[in-house]
Design a protein around this nucleic acid. Structure first.
Ligand SMILES: [Mg+2]
Length: 295
DNA sequence: GCGACAG
DNA sequence: ATCTTGTCGC
């Protein structure tokens, strides 16, 4: 069983179908025509998929250094494109390709939802949950694990859904939201840890914010590496503003309905001797286990 | 060789 | 995120 084309794959297919015969464009140009050059790697992976399915136009895309895929060379030569070594002659490059608003619309959605964020002190926290996702191809297994303050697991849920979108830096929630949301919605908790950033995001709206707004629940982002910001001591700053923390190997920031100070306080409360707060460690294991058992 | 981009 | 080897215990 092969994977379905993702929403992004179809956008890429649409863009490359607009490249005239006898012309080529670059991977980065396609990413930009979708709205963000950060999608360059995802476009590269998309093209590989389109090539394997023989979708028209895949061969008219080259790397930034003008190198063409070896399998594309005979096809390009047949259309009259001049190739020296593996590189296409510059005169055949076009930047005039169809544009898509997909990433711009996603960015806009983040900015709109950002207005719903509330940063305030969290109430009493008796239970905390963690959500994470594991993958087998494009099948996503989302897991939510709830613990009390003595680290006893009080509730768990696992869901299995198709991943409809690839990973693109700064758009992670558009890949992981559904499995995370569906798993979390089935549980009861006072605060939710999310395996990804909260405010530590170029739009101040990371995955943890996205989930917090949708669930209308306090959420905390806890990521294993930094996406934006600079570290001074145990604080993380973005554009000179203190938005998060370094804590035991993870980067903590508010998602929604919690203050910056409380995000640290609650994270410490649920931290054992590991790289992330315990509910996330367990959610990670739970999702991974579900993905291994099934498929 | 450099830089990189949460998961 | 996933892909991988060899090794150990059952
Ligand atoms: Mg994860």
């Amino acid at each position: 069983m092969s994977e379905d084309l993702s929403v992004l794959d179809r956008e890429v297919a649409s863009v490359i179908s607009s490249i005239p015969r006898g012309k080529v464009t670059t991977i980065k140009t396609i990413a930009e025509s979708l709205g963000d050059k950060r999608a360059t790697l995802a476009v590269f992976l998309s093209l590989k998929k389109l090539k394997n399915r023989g979708i028209e136009g895949w061969h008219r895309v080259v790397r930034e250094n003008l190198q063409a895929d070896p399998d594309a060379i005979p096809l390009l030569k047949a259309e009259g494109v001049t190739i020296r070594g593996n590189a296409v002659d510059r005169s055949f490059i076009t930047g005039r390709v169809r544009k898509s608003a997909i990433l711009l619309r996603m960015r806009y959605a983040q900015r709109m939802m950002r207005d719903s964020l509330v940063l305030k002190e969290v109430g009493d926290v008796r239970t905390a949950a963690g959500v994470d996702v594991a993958y087998v191809g494009d099948v996503a297994f989302g897991a939510c694990v709830v613990m009390d303050r003595n680290f006893n697991v009080v509730e768990k849920s696992v869901v299995k859904v198709k991943a409809l979108f690839p990973y693109i830096p700064t758009y992670l929630a558009f890949r992981e939201f559904r499995p995370m949301y569906l798993a979390a919605r089935r549980c009861e908790f006072d605060v939710l840890f999310v395996d990804g950033h909260g405010l530590l995001h170029p739009e101040l709206f990371g995955e943890a914010c996205h989930l917090g707004v949708a669930l209308r629940k306090p959420t905390i982002g806890a990521a294993k590496s930094l996406l934006v910001g600079e570290i001074y001591g145990n604080k993380v700053f973005v554009n000179g503003i203190h938005l998060g923390w370094v804590l035991g190997g993870s980067y903590i920031s508010p998602g929604n309905m919690i203050s910056i100070d409380d995000s640290l306080k609650i994270s410490k409360m649920f931290l054992l001797n590991r790289s992330q707060p315990e509910p996330l460690i367990l959610a990670h294991m739970e999702s991974k286990m579900a993905s291994t058992k099934q498929s």
